[in-house]
Design a protein around this nucleic acid. Structure first.
Lengths: 262, 262
DNA sequence: ACATACATCTCGCGA
DNA sequence: TCGCGAGGTGTATGT
């Protein structure tokens, strides 16, 4: 039931048929979709076992392999891109193995029945663009520091300190040093501890008082208390608002550009 | 080309055909696999755009939806299980939308061509078992404390303290209190800060000296220094070894069982 | 190669 | 429902 180079679909193939198609798919780097009854063995950083059951297996062009059960976002077993793939027939079953080095890991999917086997040559060169990331928040704060506080003057961005990086670093309207830790999600305990740590690292070096501010869409009550006990501050900021600020700035730039041209 | 209740495959269906099959799949909670040319819009915690290209879309029984490109482990767009699904025809395209509340999010996949459409009723009730998790490490330490240190006597497991949980908590051979933070991966800065925080919380309450130990397969040099400066300790322990210890214990139990019977 | 931090992280467990 | 932490997390970005 081979259609053309673009995609093929087989229903209830024999093991031999399946093996041929799968090998060809590995060679031609097409996307492979297999539905069938299989068991799965994984051994590597951890190890796992999954007895026979009906699942959906996807092997991509870059040799990423996913074993999906009928529920949930996550694959039950997988191997990231770049692994080495093999297929072979053992007794009355067909076995796909994916091996990777660094870390040394092994995934085996053993089918005793394949219902559906499809190979797809997916043509997809579109750009994926994502808005409202933490990076967008950093950018927006640099462009419009009043999002955090009136009179704030950013000095540097992603400054390296002894253990890690400071998100934003600047001076407030009174000339006091300010360290800002940005989070795109509700700030948790670890964000506060991180900030406290940075403050300490800088304070010992600069030998002067420093303000520490957590910037995030929200903060839980317990963490708020911890924050206050460490003498730190919290400012609410929505990543989506930041994305809007960036968008506006881009438009403004575009306008400037056209203005110059005309 | 409908086969039976168990699975169906359609090649190059018309939009109307596709809509009917997809609706039926949503109703019957079968796993849906669609390959076709589509664009994708996401708006929620963040937002994203992906112009037309050929992709693989999976909708599971629990309404988790995944949009996969031809490369990589991760879906380019998705919605976790539990969202509300709709399908409708708009002009010459078919649109699948997945909406979720809390957080309020929306995913739209708009096809102008479907190559392959498959519905699968996956029967899968097997248990998935994973070995060498962090929990296995906790268990192994409780069973065989010498994995950490000779003479260690665990008192409690996952004891709640003001900020979070302590992994393991015990007394060393000299009667000194010991708090253990277990990590299945190489210990990082955050693990050390976490432990330091716990120690402080307990020390202020118990008003006595406490040893803090990070147990992990490895620790980086910089973190090692931080550890020493905070007067904490590190013990190397491999999660895979812990899994073996547990396995052995299980076997021993089994032997005891048979011994009793005979 | 190693270390660090983000992610529309997801998922499960408790309060 | 929220908060917290694990995960075979993966992935990008430095050094």
């Amino acid at each position: 039931m081979v259609d053309d180079d673009k995609f093929t679909v087989l229903k209830n193939p024999s093991l031999q048929e399946a093996k041929t198609i799968i090998e060809k798919s590995f060679l031609n780097k097409t996307t492979l979709v297999v539905a069938g009854n299989c068991k799965v063995i994984y051994d590597g950083r951890a190890s796992s076992k999954l007895d026979f059951g009906e699942r959906l297996i996807i092997v991509k062009r870059d040799r990423a392999i996913l074993v999906h059960r009928s529920k949930g976002y996550e694959p039950v077993n997988w191997q990231p891109s770049g692994c080495i793939l093999h297929v072979k027939i053992i007794k009355n079953s067909i076995q796909i193995s994916a091996i990777r080095h660094n870390p040394r890991e092994m995934l085996k999917v053993i089918f005793n029945k394949i219902f559906m086997l499809s190979t797809l040559l997916l043509d997809d060169s579109a750009d994926f663009t994502l808005f409202a990331s933490e990076k967008d928040m950093h950018q927006a704060i640099l462009i419009k520091p009043s999002l955090v506080e009136k009179g704030l003057k950013p000095i540097s961005y992603e400054k390296k300190v002894t253990p890690g990086f400071i998100d934003v670093y600047g001076v407030d309207k009174n000339g006091k040093l300010v360290i800002i830790e940005v989070k795109r999600k509700n700030a948790g305990k670890e964000a506060v501890l991180q900030l406290a740590n940075y403050i300490k690292a800088i304070e010992t070096k600069a030998n002067r008082d420093i303000r520490g501010i957590i910037v995030a869409p929200n903060i839980s009550k317990g963490v708020q208390r911890l924050l206050m006990s460490l003498n730190l501050e919290f400012i609410a900021l929505d990543p989506r608002l930041c994305a809007k600020v960036l968008k506006k700035t881009e438009n403004a730039k575009l306008e400037t550009y056209f203005y110059k041209k005309n």
